[in-house]
Amino acid sequence: MFDFDFNPEEKQLTCIFKGRMDTVVSSQLMAELDSKYISLSENEDKNALLEFSIIFDIKEVNFISSSFIRICVAAKKRVKDGKFSIINSDPFIKKTFKIAGLDDILNVI
C-alpha cells in the first residue's frame, strides 16, 4: 500500500504510495502516517516534524479519494511552508488536485 523512505541527514520523509487510494485505504493510511510522524518526532513532540520535508510519491497511484486529499492537506500542515510536495502525479490525478484548488498549496508536480 505504501512504503517509507526516511533520510535523516536531509530530514526528508518520502512516502511512496501504490494503487487505489480510496476511502477505506485512506482511513488506514491516516493512522499509519500519524504513528510514523510521531515516531520520527523527538520525544514524541510533533513540532519537531516542522523541520522535516515530506514528499508523497504517487507514481503508482491510479485513483485518489477525497479522504486521500485530506491526508495530503494534513501532512502539509505538519511541516513548514514549501516543505511538502507531491511528486510523479499522473495527469488525471494532477487534474484532481487542480479541481480541488490544491495543486499549488500542495505543490503537486
Binding site: 495527469p91 494532477k94 487542480k98
Partner: peptide
C-alpha cells in the same frame, strides 16, 4: 508526455 500534459493543465488553469 505526462509532464507535458501536466504543464498544459497548469497553463489552461
Amino acid at each position: 508526455y505526462h509532464s507535458a500534459i501536466k504543464l498544459c493543465i497548469d497553463l489552461n488553469y
